[in-house]
């Protein structure tokens, strides 16, 4: 319970960074922290006390393995989610660099040609 809340605290810090900060790189950092928090949360819910990694090695007892191993499905989901967040990061950095080239600033309060 406490550990879920701590993980969630990380999540809301990412949200705070996104809303309150006006700097493009800081906003990207906010998104990165959000992704860390969600990935961590997925792994936390799949953890079993004293669990072992879900990898079988030769000679291991399959019975005890399937009782002791942690939940493998969230790990698969997080693997997908890490790749997706890398993709989003690449796109965001490229757009931010292009914006810097155009406006010569990273400050969103100065990047505001669009209004209404």
């Amino acid at each position: 319970m406490t550990i879920y809340l701590m993980c969630f605290f990380l999540f809301v810090m990412g949200l705070y960074c996104l809303i309150a900060k006006k700097h493009l790189i800081k906003k990207i950092i906010g998104i990165a922290i959000l992704d860390y928090a969600v990935n961590l949360f997925l792994i936390l819910i799949g953890y079993k006390s004293g669990g072992i990694p879900p990898v079988l090695f030769e000679g291991m007892n399959k019975q005890t393995f399937s009782q002791q191993s942690v939940d493998p499905l969230p790990q698969a989901l997080v693997l997908t989610s890490i790749v997706i967040s890398l993709g989003v990061l690449i796109m965001m950095v490229s757009i931010a660099l292009r914006l810097y080239e155009k406006y010569k600033t990273f400050d969103t309060s100065e990047i505001s040609r669009l209004r209404g």
């Binding site: 819910i45 006390s49 879900p54 990898v55 079988l56 090695f57 499905l73 790990q75 698969a76 693997l79």
Partner: peptide, 29 residues
């Protein structure tokens, strides 16, 4: 929600039990 360290494992138990036999990969992930 369930307490930390007590995973629910409703569908995942199938992967752990039969993953090696059904797919042949010993890394269940």
């Amino acid at each position: 929600m369930h307490a930390f360290g007590e995973s629910l494992m409703r569908t995942s138990q199938h992967y752990l039990d039969n993953g090696l036999a059904e797919t042949g990969a010993s890394n269940i992930v």
